[in-house]
Structures are given as structure tokens and as C-alpha cells.
Amino acid sequence: MATGTTYGARDHARAQEGARAEAMPVVPAPEGLVWAETVAGGGYTHRTLARGTELRLADPTGDACAHLLLFARDRPWERLNAADTVKVQWNAYLGAGRLLLSDQGRVLASLVSDTSGRHDTLCGTSTVVRNTARYGDGSPQGPSPAGRALFELAAAKHGLTRRDLPPSISFFKGVRVEPDGSLEFTGSAAPGATVTLRAEQPLTVLLANVPHPLDPRAAYTCGVLDVRARPGRPTGPGDPLWDDTPESRRAFANTAEFLTAGGLA
């Protein structure tokens, strides 16, 4: 189809309606879901989610690496704090029952299920400088995009800038701390691993699907990431997750008090 004229370009564009690609959003989302998308390796996505929404991330090939940032929706100064997430819970390793905390002592999201166990709270994501040195290019439009650069694009869609981006955490590629303090890259658990997060506040979610900074493979290698979100209910008093530890009870109580006072719960 010729596209040398405005009419030709219009007809060509309209002819693409209904076309499918391996990695793309599903619009509208299938019944029962509020978000359904497959994110290519080297791609990114973003969404605002209501409180209680359950966000399921899946690694169908065993080669996805989902780098995640969370912001309180409409209050981006309250954001994921990886250091407090580790420090407050006395645990550097994410898994079912862990909480993703802000620096306000409140819960942004809880990790309600996990079949992977290979995650990282320590290294953050890749940078343009590092990817250029390793792969020859780290630009978001190039063949080996850096996670930090993709986060900047996703953030801009929500009125945020580079200065708003804290260190991220990542799912599906593991890192362990050795006795001497060095970091060991443990890679993927297996194809088909999943993680489900529950939004404990209204959230802005940014995701970059790029290789982990410690991935030793010479080639830029990253599989697709499946994203599915459905409506749900936030964690409440009496839930085992709420009462799991003294730290979780305090964090959930801080969150409930703040949201109730602001008419958000």
C-alpha cells in the first residue's frame, strides 16, 4: 500500500487495526482484568492502579528481568525506598509475605505470592554509561536499552523527571550476598515463574524489562515479560500478612491511618 500521500498513509495506518504482535498491550483488557500487556525485552511500560489491585508479573521464557518502581499516585514524593524495604524488614531477599515500603514507613505494595524466589533489592537497574561500555549502546532507542533510560521515558508520561527516580528493585533474576560482602548473580529460577503484588495504596507503576546489571552473558539477553492486573482488596487487620511481624503491623497501621485521614480508605 502506497504511503506517499496523506490519503495513502491514512489507509495504511487504518489497515493495521486488529494486527497483533508478540509484545503489546491488550486494549481493552480482557474481562476481569484492568491491565494486560506483554513487554518485550528491552521495553518498558507504566500504569496507575487503584488500591487493592493485584499485579501479576510472569516470566514465560526464564529470561525476563522486571525492574520496578512504585510511586504513591498523585503524591510522587512518596515512592519505593529499596533501602528501607530491606532495613525495616531485616531481610534483603524478597519473597511472598515481604512488603515494598516507602521512606514514610508506609506500605506501597505487598508481595502475596512468588514462585521464583530470584529477585534483587541491591543492584538497581542498568545505566546508559554501563550498557554503552558493555554492549556498545545504552540509548532507549538503540538495540540494548538501559533500564534507567527507559524509566525516564515512563516517568515522563506521569509528569516525573530523572530527579524523581530512586533505585529500583528487580524480579526474576537473583542476587545473593556472599560472606565477604561480594554479590553473586544467581540468575533465573525457571521459565514460567510468577510474582503477584497487591497495591496497598493508589499507585503509579513503572516497569523496565532489561537484563540485570550483573548478568554475565556477553549478549544483551532479555525475554518477554507478561503483565496482568485485576481488581482486588487491600490487606486489612486480621490478614496473616498484616500480622506477620511487628514491623509489618506497624507499616500497615501507618498506611491505614494516613489513607483514612486523607479520605483515601
Rank of each mutant, 00 (worst) to 15 (best):
Gly223Ala: 11
Leu207Glu: 01
Thr161Glu: 15
Pro76Val: 05
Pro240Gln: 12
His158Ile: 01
Arg130Ser: 15
Pro231Arg: 07
Ala229Phe: 00
Ala2Phe: 12
Asn254Met: 10
Gly232Phe: 05
Ser144Asp: 03
Leu225Glu: 01
Asp243Val: 12
Pro216Val: 05
Arg20Pro: 08
Thr61Asp: 06
Ala21Asp: 14
Asp164Val: 12
Val205Lys: 00
Gly8Arg: 05
Ala83His: 15
Arg230His: 12
Pro140Gly: 05
Arg134Phe: 01
Asp11Glu: 15
Glu184Asn: 12
Ser102Leu: 05
Ser182Tyr: 09
Asp120Ala: 04
Leu33Cys: 06
Arg20Val: 14
Gly192Cys: 11
Gln141Ala: 15
Ser188Met: 09
Asn81Tyr: 07
Leu33Asn: 02
Val34Ile: 11
Arg250Trp: 10
Pro213Glu: 06
Gly223Thr: 09
Asp59Tyr: 04
Ala251Pro: 02
Leu183Val: 08
Thr85Leu: 06
Gly18Ala: 08
Thr204Val: 01
Leu214Thr: 04
Thr260Arg: 15
Val210Ser: 04
Glu78Gln: 13
Gly41Ala: 06
Gly232Thr: 02
Leu70Met: 07
Arg14Thr: 13
Phe258Cys: 13
Gly147Asp: 00
Arg106Tyr: 04
Trp35Cys: 00
Pro143Trp: 12
Tyr7Ser: 15
Trp35His: 01
Ala15Asp: 14
